[in-house]
Design a protein around this nucleic acid. Structure first.
Lengths: 185, 185
DNA sequence: TAGCTTCTTGACCATGGAGTCAAGTACTGC
DNA sequence: GCAGTACTTGACTCCATGGTCAAGAAGCTA
């Protein structure tokens, strides 16, 4: 069963508006704002997507999955466990700064939805591999646990969210301090 | 002009309740909750303290000033720029973990009030002195700026607030990573 | 204890956001 | 172009919070 023409138009409009609004304001932006941006009423969004959660599911892939895949690709092209490990972390951390929405996803900030959790788990998985390799090579301190790693990403997320006033270059420079602290003594 | 007996009783009760409630929930705890804890109505608090801000002013000293002073004293008793610097940071960071209210103060989370700002500024001042000494001794990387230092405290504050699930010992252990990243290369 | 003054109460207003639904609008097939 | 159904609307409810104030309760003084 296919949607009526106006409904199809609206679904697309809402998706595009959500993408736009979520990108700048994160996944918690009020639904009214999404509705306004899409030029429809809030009710239509609830009717079409069943609330915030469904809406997120509908845009999460375009929103962040490709960004994360890009980081992974970039890392795969590098040589050496330490550069790979550090490039990945830095990439994720910068993504968290650049895209509040991606950050929300990484932090499972919101109404957990299936595609969202899958994405997170894949990212974690990959990171753990990098950690293992870097530690095996003696390039990262051995007392850094997988939970620490998850935590490093989580905490960077809260920082990116809570301190939006810092410039990107300062943020980036400070990432260097943090990475430095993960090397062996 | 002196307060009536019941009023005096209430003021004390409210102060004690605020201390208690703020300690566990931070300076943003709903006023209704403070009122309930004190066994009075919300209106009484507004009448007696003029709102959250006044209430904070009334308890901030007992709440955190003495804790910060304790850290300063402890640091003063140490020898060597690096131990002093690191002990101070660690002390503040642990305080942020232990006392959400202290954290709120440090982060100027709330209705700025005079005593609160003064407290923050004093703490910053002191920290900057420690930083200067540690850098002069070559024990801390020279590219760490005073703003970085402020930021390190601020961001630890958001972390302590946002990730209350981590155990104190994990939190503490991870502080070690961060400190390690501040040493020279 | 009466009467005055201080104090407290809790119902009330405002804000801002989530989520719902009866009624009205617009598309589509015949 | 009409009927019938799909779709949209926006006003509504609900909840949590900050904050106010007229009316009633309580303490104090003579």
């Amino acid at each position: 069963m296919t949607l009526r023409a106006d409904a199809r138009r609206n679904v697309e409009g809402i998706r595009r508006a959500a993408l736009d609004v979520f990108r700048t304001g994160g996944l918690t932006t009020p639904m009214d704002e999404v509705a306004r941006a899409a030029g429809v009423s809030k009710g239509t969004i609830y009717h079409r997507f069943g609330g915030r959660r469904g809406l997120i599911d509908a845009v999460v892939d375009e929103l962040v999955a490709e960004r994360i895949r890009a980081i992974v690709d970039e890392v795969e092209a590098l040589d050496g466990p330490l550069p790979r490990f550090e490039a990945y972390l830095r990439g994720i951390w910068l993504l968290q700064f650049d895209e509040p929405a991606a950050n929300d996803v990484l932090m499972r900030a919101l109404p957990d939805s299936k595609p969202l959790s899958i994405l997170c788990d894949q990212a974690c998985e990959f990171a753990l591999g990098l950690l293992r390799d870097a530690q095996a090579a003696g390039a990262i301190r051995p007392d850094l646990t997988p939970e620490d790693l998850t935590h490093l990403i989580l905490e960077r997320g809260t920082i990116a969210r809570a301190c939006p006033h810092q410039s990107r270059s300062d943020y980036d420079r400070r990432l260097g301090f943090t990475l430095r602290g993960l090397r062996p003594l």
